[in-house]
Design a binder for these strands. Structure first.
Lengths: 192, 192, 192, 192
DNA sequence: CATGAATGAGCCTTCATTCAT
DNA sequence: TATGAATGAAGGCTCATTCAT
């Protein structure tokens, strides 16, 4: 009975938190977040018991959004390099089309507010990617390394490209290509 | 100007800010910084007119510290790859022996508080490195790319290694080697 | 008026308020009270239009509970001192067996939230006691004094005994006797 | 160096807290207290790290004020009853001339905010009274009982008198006498 | 110059009450 | 009637910065 929690408000709040965190870091105030979401400050706390909780949920949502964007259209039976190139393209695409998401993710990653449990939850999401990586190891295409390390390399170089491209949109294409060469050089095993 | 500003106090403050920022991010309070520096809160503001100013100075100092650590012992007439490997070793060494510095730098980089002017000032410091990179381009050893991009790759992979190694000190050596292979693969041109 | 207000829920709410107030004073939140009563927060306000109203009702109920406990088994034709001793025993009994009630009453008395009307209503309840007291004055057994004053003395000393006994249950009996001597000394006229 | 903590402001704050607590109970806001003290809200927290701390200090000050008022002019070599009567008179005098103090003390006593340490500290203050009481026991003038109990009786009856007198100032004198008879009856041993 | 008291805006969170369901 | 989401006003406390000493 009573009014049910509105999924719409929840999304408003997360969306508002997204831009707020991208703009002001985790110092963004709950009041500003609530206001931009068109909601009273108190309401924020009926959806997220704590500011930290909101940040964790936001982190989760961003990661999930990124992963699902990356894996969309991935064909698991094609050449591994092709698949990685697909991943790469999608990553840059994601970052270009929603720069706030990328920036907010960066802020959250550096913030010390993300709990171990949240981190765990993100791992569960990337099952498909994990398989791809493992196949890369087995076939000898990729240099053997911890999965998290590999993922970190991708993330790092993508971040770099996005940042570089942000300054000069016209070179975006060039930049993406450079990034791809860099990435593939970084992770492939180069056994001729 | 009876009593001049004491260089010692200035350093105390920067050192204190370093650990504070590494631990708590830029949210670290001026009070906590002053206290750990053994100085009154007001004093902090005679040395740095503003908290943001302190953060910028800290950033400058960290970058300069890093660059001078990297370039120490660099022999400009040896093989380029050897020089880069030296750089790499020194980077990891720096990060391992002073993890606070590395973490603080990360926090500052992400913080939106570093002004353009400060950023400019850091470029000036890396003259020697710039020359090395350019020689890399000319000789065709390195893939042609913006210097800042290259620098970002180094930084990103080094950060990744430090983070990975932090969790498991025993694998530090392994990790460093993996990092080097990754880095060299990322930046070298691979012309057979 | 399809469904009438349920007397059961009303009691749940008052019972819950009782322990909440005893524990946390009148600062106890309506949410906590409603929850412990197994009822939605909004429901509380259909039974009591206001938190202050709830507190007043609780006060009334506690006073009435106390008075009826005191007067139960009172034989109006025995010796006055015996009747007072009966009262005293019953008071201590009440306080010992339901310490929450006693504590809650204290909190409410001190709270400035009890209205004059509520206070009036309690007077009406103690008719039987009033008669006893007046007989005490007429026969010269009790020192002449305002009824409210006398009642205050009883309450004060009983409270003291309960508080003292709370710390050391083993001495409860001793404590009760001491209290009785104190009380009787305080109110009897001592005409030898 | 620097501006020293001003004893005057400290007193302003305690005085303001006194009336605020007397009027609104411990729910009195720190803002209202600071304002009435003519001081910024933040300032309150440089003098008292916590609201609870302020309340404890206030309690201490009130107790100390009361005790020193009671013992002033006490002649330890006169008759015990006379000394107690002196105490009684002083107590009523204190309560009459500063009703806020009395009310605030009541609020604090009931509040659950006074720590054990604070309570301890108050015991230390009443050394002189303790001696008087013990002499009362030794000489058989007082009924043997725990000191705290005796003190509670005095406090309780005094409170009652003050409350009763508050309603009808003209009867204050009468009321005080009645209180004294009640008190002495309550604590004296009545051995003829 | 060094100190730390003073300031008041701002922060996160709680709360009594209202109202849509 | 019962529910609990929605509200926005406080509440206690922290903080960067100023300024008297």
């Amino acid at each position: 009975m009573a009014r049910p929690l509105s999924e719409e408000k929840r999304h408003s709040l997360l969306a508002s938190a997204l831009t707020a965190v991208a703009t002001s870091g985790i110092a963004a105030s709950t009041l500003s977040i609530a206001k931009k979401a068109g909601v009273a400050e108190g309401t924020l706390f009926t959806y997220f018991p704590t500011k930290d909780d909101l940040l964790n949920q936001l982190y989760l949502e961003l990661k999930s959004d990124l992963v699902s964007h990356l894996t969309a259209g991935l064909m698991s039976d094609t050449d591994i390099m092709v698949q990685f190139h697909h991943l790469w393209t999608r990553y840059i695409d994601w970052g270009m089309s929603s720069p706030h998401k990328h920036e907010a993710l960066r802020q959250l990653e550096v913030s010390h507010k993300i709990t171990g449990a949240t981190e765990q939850a993100t791992h569960a999401m990337s099952h498909e990617l994990q398989i791809l990586v493992e196949r890369g190891f087995e076939t000898g295409v990729l240099r053997k390394q911890p999965v998290m390390f590999l993922w970190g390399v991708i993330q790092g170089i993508a971040g770099l490209v996005l940042q570089t491209a942000a300054g000069d949109m016209r070179k975006a294409r060039e930049c993406e290509d450079l990034g791809w060469e860099t990435l593939w050089g970084a992770i492939a095993s180069h056994q001729t």
